[in-house]
Design a protein around this nucleic acid. Structure first.
Lengths: 219, 219
DNA sequence: GAGATTATGGCAGCGTCTGACAATTGACAA
DNA sequence: TTGTCAATTGTCAGACGCTGCCATAATCTC
């Protein structure tokens, strides 16, 4: 099998081979993100990343499908933790309230998954880099739309609805995802703001979802 | 100047050179879209497009910044016609109603701009190709977010608001754009449906925007 | 028609990414 | 310990996207 594989259920000690692979992968991620932050995404070649991680360029492509993928390696953790947080929301909450709660709590536990591989500050720098690099922003938006689809399924499940018949879950996630995108963009634009500021922007924008759809804005 | 240039105000007869450039550009677009439809986007090389259009590969890149750009050449017309339609909506309409009206009317006048370069059926095939090709879908979403930003400015202007202070225009466009995306995806998935079906999906989903944000979905 | 502009073609080269093959390394059993 | 098998890795060659540079050919201006 290849370098990426799901950890089987009956794995006692990971074994030397597994540990080495994991270490190589983490090293590649760290070297890549550091180089990206240092000299930008486009001006960092795969050869440079491979050299910094002390592997051949060919090996890089055995761990990541492309240069883009390594930039999003940590976003994977963030997204799956968001999905997990939604599943754990109490069933009594309304769909929108559940989403709102999930995003706020998942931000809190973010440091645990990410911090073990890369300093948190570097991760946030990477996020701003994604937002400001056209090629990466495009991929980011596509990934977000995939997350939206997963979340729409979860909302439909919570409410006992059929996604094919009822458009509300997808419409809700379209609106919610849109707010998340705008939030991320505004947050990224204002330099090195921290988590607290991000929570403030998110809640403020979510609160405006209803008013924005109202007929008359002059009240 | 390069091949692409804004038509100056005082151009009487376009001149042979201008006509030739326009023809080359249209030919490149037509050849590219036909090849894309025939054998897919990724398996169509720039060399093949250039050969079909009877120009050198080097010339192709003088008309388009990349292979992606030619795939979106016609989307440009669609988007700008949408923006123009919004500007022409009566000021009395609510923001959401104006957006809804603009998208519906701009679909109607779509055939005029596009049809002169490429058969409308090919254009719709191209749209479905964009939706189903990951690399193109990513770029498509980024372009949509740029359109959203332009439309948010227009809405803010209509309502006499300051975009930096009032988040409602961006929130509205985030929700509206999200619905447009979901609509396009669903429409693309169900094969060769026509314009009528597309209008039906759009209006049905827009009507669900309010209900989707409601507290209780079981009514 | 002469000269200035501009589009085009050809070429060399960089960077991303892939397939094929050989060499190395870890896993496991005799 | 040693031999065997499988997995990981490095090397090489090459396709493809894209760009800079310069010479050529077409068009425009006078």
């Amino acid at each position: 099998m290849h370098a990426i594989e799901g950890a089987g259920a009956r794995t006692g000690p990971p074994g030397l081979r597994e540990r080495k692979k994991r270490r190589t992968r983490d090293t590649l991620i760290r070297c890549a993100l550091e180089l990206f932050a240092l000299q930008g995404y486009e001006r960092t070649t795969v050869d440079a990343i491979a050299e910094a991680a002390d592997v051949s360029p060919r090996t890089f492509f055995r761990y990541f499908a492309g240069k883009e993928e390594v930039a999003f390696a940590l976003q994977d953790s963030v997204e799956s933790s968001f999905c997990a947080a939604l599943r754990e929301r109490p069933a009594a909450e309304s769909p929108l309230a559940a989403l709102r709660g999930a995003v706020l709590t998942s931000w809190d536990k973010l440091g645990e998954d990410v911090g073990s591989i890369v300093p948190l500050e570097l991760h946030m720098r990477t996020y701003r880099m994604i937002e400001s690099t056209p090629a990466l922003l495009a991929v980011h938006l596509r990934r977000l739309s995939e997350v939206e689809e997963r979340l729409a399924h979860e909302i439909a499940r919570r409410e006992g609805l059929d996604l094919a018949a009822d458009p509300r879950p997808r419409v809700l996630l379209a609106a919610f995802g849109g707010v998340m995108r705008v939030t991320g963009r505004i947050w990224g634009e204002q330099g090195g703001a921290g988590m607290t500021e991000l929570r403030r922007i998110i809640t403020a924008h979510l609160d405006q979802l209803g008013p924005a759809l109202a007929e008359n804005w002059r009240t």
